[in-house]
Amino acid sequence: MYIRCAFFRGRAKPGFEDAFTHFVHERLVPLWTQFPGAEEVRVLRQEEADVIEPHYEMVLAIRYPSREAIEQALASDVRTQSRSVTADLVELFDGDIFHTVFRADQYPLLVV
């Protein structure tokens, strides 16, 4: 499986933390959950870290079964829509955004 992540490195602008969260849940999650081929959508919000920087306001992690599924999602109309909406989110955010694709191996937990 593969997981494509969008890292929002930085912070919501002071005073806009709640607006940032609301915007993500109301305007972007409905689009992200429509990406073709996506098997799971997770929105991760940093609660704590063992370093002060970098801070990640949010990490979007979308699981796909294959690289081909990722390419299909990236070429989709809904992804184009989400990029346009994300441009509005950037107004509430101080930082940068970058993407990474991880190959993910999954292992069953050992029962002791």
Rank of each mutant, 00 (worst) to 15 (best):
R103G: 12
M58Q: 04
I62V: 12
V90I: 15
R9T: 14
F20I: 06
L74M: 06
P14T: 07
A6S: 15
P30K: 05
L89M: 03
V41Y: 04
Q72P: 01
V101K: 01
V78Y: 01
I3Y: 08
R11M: 11
D50A: 14
F23P: 09
A49T: 11
D96R: 14
Q72S: 12
T21P: 11
Q34P: 01
V101S: 03
R9G: 12
S66C: 03
R83C: 04
L110I: 14
A38L: 02
A104G: 05
L74D: 08
V111T: 11
E39M: 11
R27Q: 12
R67C: 02
Y64F: 08
A12S: 07
D77R: 10
R83N: 12
D77G: 08
D94E: 10
E68A: 14
Y64V: 00
L28E: 09
V24E: 03
Y2I: 07
T86C: 09
M1W: 11
M1I: 09
H99W: 01
V43A: 04
V101W: 01
L109S: 13
R4F: 04
K13Y: 07
T21K: 15
F16C: 15
S66I: 00
F16S: 14
V78K: 02
E71G: 09
E26R: 13
V59M: 02
E40F: 12
L92Y: 01
T80I: 08
G37M: 00
L60A: 01
A104K: 07
M58I: 03
M58V: 06
R11L: 10
I70P: 00
S84I: 13
P36S: 02
D94L: 04
F102E: 05
F98W: 10
S76D: 02
G37H: 03
D88F: 13
Y2G: 08
L89C: 04
F35V: 03
P36N: 09
T80H: 13
F98Y: 15
V43C: 10
F8A: 05
T100W: 12
E39D: 10
E17A: 06
H22I: 15
S76L: 03
I62R: 00
Y56S: 06
S84E: 15
V51H: 11
D94V: 01
H55T: 11
